[in-house]
Amino acid sequence: MKDTKEQNRHIYWNPYFGGFLLGILIIITFYITGRGLGASGAMKSSVVTIVDDVSHEHAEQSAYYSKFVSDDKSPMNNWIVFETLGVLIGAFISGGLAGRIGWRVQHSPKITRRRRLIFALIGGVLFGVGAQIARGCTSGAALSGMAVLSTGGFITMLAIFGTGYLFAYFFRKNWI
């Protein structure tokens, strides 16, 4: 047990250091591109591309997909998609340097692997729907919104964390 305790404390960066660097990165991103960071946008582009490949007609007729489909440009040719490729590379480098790479399902010892995967899927579906309703996720709407004092960004941030705390009680068995 003592080993794990040591590990918990030392394997990751100090959160204030990580937060400081992330803040600097947001400043640089706004300074260069005029926009903030994002993550769910790339997944939206992927879904649009898949739907467009399966049925071009359906994508053209849908009121939502049609916003992102154009004849001369693939929905994957998008700032956020390239940024997300970078996220995968960067996280892989960091995980590789710290020796954290490996196929595993991380879950509390009190729940089964299967239960963890089911809840991970449900959580993903909810996050996908929510990120579309709010036009952005924790990075795109809340964090990047807050950096420029966007009212919507602050409201989204409060709603995410507020509801998280409200519902945490019901899911406690999965985590503690």
């Binding site: 809840f119 959580g123 709407a141 989204t156 941030m157 507020g162 899911f171």
Partner: peptide
């Protein structure tokens, strides 16, 4: 700012966060 979109979307994401333990990034 789309007032109710931000509130409802954020709330759905909050439940998704505590259910799945991740956000997209």
């Amino acid at each position: 700012t789309y007032l109710w979109g931000a509130i409802i979307g954020g709330a759905v994401m909050g439940i998704g966060f505590v259910t799945g333990g991740f956000c997209p990034g």
